[in-house]
Computed example of a mutant assay.
Amino acid sequence: MITVECLVDNSPVRARNQGNRPTCVAFAVTDLNRRFADDDLGPEYFYRATIRRIPGWQPGDGVQVAAAAEASRAGHARETDFPYQVDEPVVPLEALPDTLDLFGHPIRFFNVDVDELIIRMRMGVPIGLALRLTYEFYLPVNGVITFSNSLLPGAMQHAVVAVGLGHDAQGETWFLTRNSWGAAWGQNGHAWIPVAYIAAHATCAFGVEHGSPDSA
């Protein structure tokens, strides 16, 4: 049993479903920025703003860290203004509209230091995490993902958002994470991950810088 120490999820963000598209970073970044907007932010707009900054991008390529950090400076559109799509965009990419209201703040990426992550969480700051995945990640049991070194082949990585801290009976720290695989994953789209998993398998962390978005 995991006892909750703190929850940092103060905005009405729900676990969404990215479908069969490599858009997890876009979901995580707009999730982090939701508390700065008056409605749900759309990952589609940010995803397209990011891939436009990647030379030679093709459908299915996903995003690159540097391009995502740059695109985040322009801000994020509401989901109602630029809805998420089932399929990848086609190339050549269409221009993004320049009349939408944009919200949120730029993100920055930083190295994983679990002690620093714990401090940030205790300060009420949600954190994005890029994780190398294990088989256990796909099937949380009672909302819990156990530690394993059995990484999936191909160095597959996935972005989630840490929204809470907890501790088990042995005193181990756990992070409550929100995924973008729909409400059926874990418990309503959330699951607890042990700190050992993050220390071993997180490749980077990212958070929101407080400042006004640059103009698009």
Rank of each mutant, 00 (worst) to 15 (best):
T146R: 12
T146K: 04
T146Y: 09
T146N: 10
F147W: 04
F147L: 09
S148P: 00
S148C: 06
S148E: 02
N149Y: 10
N149P: 00
N149K: 03
N149G: 07
S150Q: 13
S150W: 09
S150D: 14
S150Y: 04
L152E: 05
P153V: 07
P153W: 12
G154I: 04
A155L: 11
A155M: 05
M156N: 01
Q157T: 15
Q157M: 13
Q157V: 11
H158Y: 05
H158G: 08
A159H: 05
V160G: 02
V160S: 01
V161C: 00
V161T: 14
A162T: 00
V163C: 04
V163A: 03
G164M: 01
G164F: 05
G164K: 05
G164H: 03
L165G: 00
G166F: 06
H167M: 14
D168Q: 13
A169L: 11
A169W: 04
Q170Y: 05
Q170S: 09
Q170H: 15
Q170D: 15
G171N: 15
E172P: 00
T173E: 03
T173R: 12
W174A: 06
W174V: 02
W174E: 02
F175Y: 14
F175M: 07
L176C: 10
S180A: 10
S180D: 08
S180V: 14
G182T: 14
G182P: 13
G182V: 04
G182F: 11
G182Y: 09
A183Y: 15
A183G: 01
A183S: 10
A183F: 12
A184W: 15
W185D: 01
W185F: 08
G186E: 07
G186R: 11
Q187F: 04
